[in-house]
Every structure is written in structure tokens, then in C-alpha cells.
Simulated scan of single mutants.
Amino acid sequence: MILLSDPQVADVPVRDCGEPLVEIASAPAIALDPRERDEEGAYGRVRAGVLDRLCAASEKLPDGIGFLVVEGHRSSAEQARRFALYEDRLRGSGITEAAELRRRASAFVSPVEVAPHCAGAALDLTLVDDDGVELDMGGAVNGHRTGDEKYCPMDAPGLTDRARRNRALLARAMGDAGFVNYPTEWWHWSYGDRYWALMTKAGSAPYGPA
């Protein structure tokens, strides 16, 4: 498994295409959840091409099922704050070596210099029914914050058949639209960032920090 702290990710060149951030709420088919709302409203924005692909993915979902986006863009300052907080949590568990702290933290919070959210390239999202009720995904979005790490990986053991089917549905729709999953977080998908470029062998990333 390649983590975001891997030097291969940082080695991917960025050739930003200049595409703007756009409002996720401008897409009627996509629901936006307020739980990660920030003062600037950045959480509700992504690059235009990312939103186009998300809309295309939503059209592939079965009737009665839709996307609920929890977070899109994130500022570099906020990313750095979250990374530091998670490192502090790991220190509290007895991990003190700097390289190991960085590696462990990057399983759930990206180092700021390669963070897909900071590029406007990432989406944290889940599936909901027609009533807006979240489907059983076998664990919550951002479950690592509540000590639920074991169910965060896409292929986590111990999931029910229903949760596996729902994760497979999410993966199929997002994958067919060109997104890649960060395998430690079933809810995190990105397009156009350095991690995406490495995993797809694109050669360079069209989206850098926005």
C-alpha cells in the first residue's frame, strides 16, 4: 500500500491547469453535508473537472441512491492543523520516532505538501437513499477520529455483506468516473492530484494546491 507520505507521491510534478474551484451545491444531483463546514465555505468546493466527474458518477448509481459529500477543498493551514493533531494523538499512544509518526499519521491525514484536499481534487463522501439516510458502509466517514480505524480501510475485514456491497457500489461508480481511492479511507476519492497521478501513471498532476 502506498501512503501519502511516500516520497514517490511528492516526486510527482504538478502542472496546474488553472481550473477554478466551483460550488458542489451547484450540482442538483449531489447532496452536501454541513458537518465539516468551515467559515470560508471551502469544504463545499472542488475543481470544476472533479465536480463534472462526480456528476457523471452519480448518473451511474441505481435509482434511489445518491452521493452525500462531506468535504471537498481544505486550506493548507487547516490541513497542517489536522496533521499535527493526529501526530499528537499518536504520540499519546507511545509513538515518538519522527519518521514513524509521519508515516502513521499519513494513513488518515495527508502531509500538507501533497494533500489532495488542498488541491481541490479530493472528495470525502458516502451514499444515501432518497430520504437522505446514509447507507450502511460498515463504518463512519472519518471513523479514525472516533477510534474506529479498523473499519476505515476499503477492504477492512469483518464487514457485513451489506456494507461490502455498498462499498463496492461506491467504488464502481467513482472508479468508472476516473477517481482513485485512498485505500486506508473508504470515503476518500480524488482525481488530478499527485496521488492520483502516481496511481494512474499519469506522469504529472493537473491540480496543485488551490
Rank of each mutant, 00 (worst) to 15 (best):
A57I: 02
R194T: 04
A10H: 10
V112I: 10
A107T: 13
L32D: 12
A171F: 04
D33F: 03
R165C: 03
E36W: 15
H144Y: 15
I24D: 12
S75L: 06
V12D: 05
A105W: 12
R167H: 03
G49E: 07
A56L: 04
L90N: 05
Y151P: 00
S58R: 12
V128Q: 11
V112S: 14
A107E: 15
R81P: 00
D124L: 09
A99V: 01
V9A: 09
G158D: 00
T160M: 02
A171H: 12
P153T: 04
S26H: 10
M1A: 09
A57Q: 01
E100Y: 02
W196H: 14
L123N: 10
F67R: 15
R81H: 11
A163W: 00
A168L: 01
C17I: 13
D124M: 03
R172Q: 14
Y43V: 03
G178D: 07
P206C: 12
M199G: 06
L54F: 13
P28N: 11
L125P: 05
T160Y: 02
A42Y: 12
L90R: 07
S58E: 09
E149V: 12
S93N: 07
T96W: 08
L125Q: 05
E97D: 12
G120A: 07
D33N: 09
W189N: 07
V14G: 09
S5A: 12
E19T: 09
R81I: 05
D6W: 04
A140L: 01
F83V: 11
E134D: 07
D6K: 03
V114G: 02
E97Q: 06
L85H: 15
G138Q: 02
E40T: 14
V109Q: 15
R47N: 07
T146W: 02
Y207S: 12
G208Y: 03
G158R: 00
M199A: 10
Y191S: 05
L54M: 11
K201E: 08
W196S: 08
V112T: 15
G41I: 03
S76N: 13
V69H: 08
R104H: 11
E40Q: 14
A107R: 14
S93G: 12
G44L: 01
D131R: 13
V69F: 09
R37D: 07
L61T: 13
M174W: 06
Y86Q: 12
L90A: 13
R167K: 05
S5V: 02
A202G: 11
V70E: 08
H144P: 01
G192A: 02
P206T: 07
R47H: 07
K60T: 13
R45Y: 01
R82N: 15
F108L: 07
P116A: 04
E149P: 06
D52H: 14
H188E: 10
A115H: 04
G94W: 01
